[in-house]
């Protein structure tokens, strides 16, 4: 067991953990934040996607000892009570079915929009290739990412205008 200091959603946490323990289980079992999901344990399904230093990472295969920067989970994606445009779009497009994969889907999409405010279908397909949805909500995921991108663009334009 070793001590680790983690920055998660802007807060500092001291945790005692085995160096090999994946970040996923530190977040879920030690920090008791359960929005990040366990799906496969081998970085195939994407349900455990979080951001480390802003980049999407599969937390089920990332040992806590290898975490090298601030972590954002689905619980930290909104700005206080103000939802991230993706979260608003997810609700509007009625994307979720069972909902289990959606935290990971939204985190992957958020990383895409952070670097590409006008993604094409091909950009979305590429950025979302690491996440699958067993319920098959892909049609709506794609539509919601486009809608969220348009919020961003409208927002930017409004700010420019003001």
């Amino acid at each position: 067991m070793s001590k680790y200091t983690l920055q998660v959603n802007g807060e500092t946490h001291e945790v005692d953990a085995d160096p090999q323990m994946p970040l996923l289980w530190v977040i879920r079992d030690k920090l008791k934040m359960t929005g990040t999901k366990f799906g496969c344990g081998i970085a195939q399904c994407g349900a455990c996607t979080v951001h480390v230093n802003g980049a999407p990472m599969r937390s089920c295969v990332l040992p806590v000892s290898a975490v090298s920067g601030p972590v954002t989970t689905i619980e930290g994606l909104s700005n206080g009570n103000e939802l991230h445009p993706l979260q608003t779009a997810w609700i509007e497009h009625d994307v979720p079915q069972c909902g289990y994969c959606q935290s990971g889907q939204i985190m992957s999409a958020a990383a895409l929009l952070a670097s590409n405010k006008k993604p094409s279908d091909a950009d979305i397909d590429q950025a979302m290739a690491g996440n699958f949805c067993r319920c098959g909500t892909y049609v709506r995921i794609r539509a919601a990412v486009h809608t969220a991108a348009s919020f961003y663009n409208a927002d930017t334009n409004a700010k420019k205008g003001a």
Partner: peptide
């Protein structure tokens, strides 16, 4: 009509409680 799922907000914010998320005081794994 088209009505959005009543749990969409909790799903999109990661706050839904699935069976796997249950935490009971004194619980072992």
């Amino acid at each position: 009509t088209s009505v959005a799922g009543v749990d969409n907000l909790v799903v999109a914010t990661g706050l839904t409680e699935f069976g796997i998320d249950v935490d009971v005081p004194g619980m072992m794994y």
